[in-house]
């Protein structure tokens, strides 16, 4: 008994002594902007010690990876399976995959130095050390989310849109009022649900799905009348009709950003690269290449 108590006390001392050792390596990272002329590639070299894996840019995204963000036929031994609606990030096809390789190139990485891992959405903001450098899966930037993770500069301006199949009562709707009594669906983790709740304010409770695939399954089954997805996804042909698009929530342009662990020291290099790519038209070119930019669909009001 006494020995047990002594053991507990010892354990307490050990616990107090060994625990508080945070791994705050290279705290000087974000602040050493002493050399303003550093290119993103030079920045990447200087901060190569802050990468998850040496000389490799490790990017996390969802699996399955949906078009039009990811495309192409699966490369051998890839975790990702390609289909008419999904792709493999390794191919560099699709907006986000192409953006990732363009970003890597600007930072001085070769194609072989880009590594992908598949994660569920929850993991992109789980606390603790990450097994990737950043997550890239159409994550919308918001101040509340920024308390948990660090976001990069926005790399894509996005709106939400409503899709439905032939015969749905949603077709022809142009106002929020016409959508109020419809059964709407949205994939989880997107701002689609917020759009439904804040703009449509429906009388019927919206259904929320684990991923796009399940939402579309129920759309085909007729369990929901229409599904809210981001604008480029809406145009990919997942459903028969793009009914309309939604205005920005709270009047602020919604943007996708890369999500980093709080305090990631490599992020400034990436921010610098994204700003460059935005200014020199690279992002616009990627958008023209991979996404449908038809904006003739009506905006709900």
């Amino acid at each position: 008994m006494r020995r047990y108590l002594v053991g507990l006390a010892l354990l307490a001392i050990v616990a107090a002594a060994c625990a508080p050792e945070s791994s705050t390596t290279s705290a000087a990272g974000p602040t050493d902007s002493g050399a303003p002329a550093m290119t993103p590639a030079e920045c990447a070299t200087a901060h190569s010690g802050d990468l998850y894996a040496a000389d490799t840019l490790t990017i996390a995204t969802g699996n399955p990876a949906y078009s039009p963000w990811y495309g192409g036929k699966s490369v051998p031994d890839s975790e990702w399976e390609s289909s008419s609606f999904t792709g493999d990030p390794h191919t560099g096809d699709g907006y986000e995959a192409a953006f990732a390789y363009a970003l890597a190139e600007r930072l001085g990485f070769t194609e072989d130095q880009v590594s992908w891992i598949g994660i569920p959405f929850n993991k992109s903001f789980a606390p603790g050390p990450k097994d990737f450098d950043f997550a890239m899966q159409q994550i919308s930037i918001s101040p509340k989310r920024a308390e948990a993770v660090d976001f990069s500069e926005g790399y894509f301006d996005v709106n939400q849109a409503l899709i439905a199949n032939e015969g749905s009562p949603a077709i022809g709707a142009t106002t929020f009022d016409e959508l109020k009594d419809l059964k709407l669906g949205a994939p989880i983790g997107t701002t689609s649900l917020q759009v439904i709740e804040e703009q449509v304010q429906p009388n019927v409770e919206p259904t929320v799905y684990d991923d796009l695939d399940l939402a579309l399954k129920d759309l085909d089954n007729g369990q929901v009348d229409a599904v809210v997805v981001d604008f480029p996804t809406a145009f990919y042909g997942y459903a028969d009709v793009v009914v309309g698009q939604f205005p920005n929530l709270g009047g602020e342009q919604e943007q996708f950003g890369l999500s980093f662990e709080k305090g990631n020291a490599f992020k400034p290099c990436i921010d610098q690269a994204i700003v460059e790519m935005r200014e020199d038209g690279t992002l616009d070119a990627l958008k023209d290449e991979w996404l449908e930019t038809d904006t003739s669909v009506p905006t709900f009001s």
Binding site: A12, A15, A19, P20, F125, P127, G128
Partner: peptide
């Protein structure tokens, strides 16, 4: 004590803040 003093407990974006 063990939990509260762990490195990931009080860091920004750490367990205390996120859970």
């Amino acid at each position: 004590i063990l939990i509260v003093n762990s490195p990931g407990w009080s860091a920004p974006g750490g367990v205390r803040q996120l859970f």
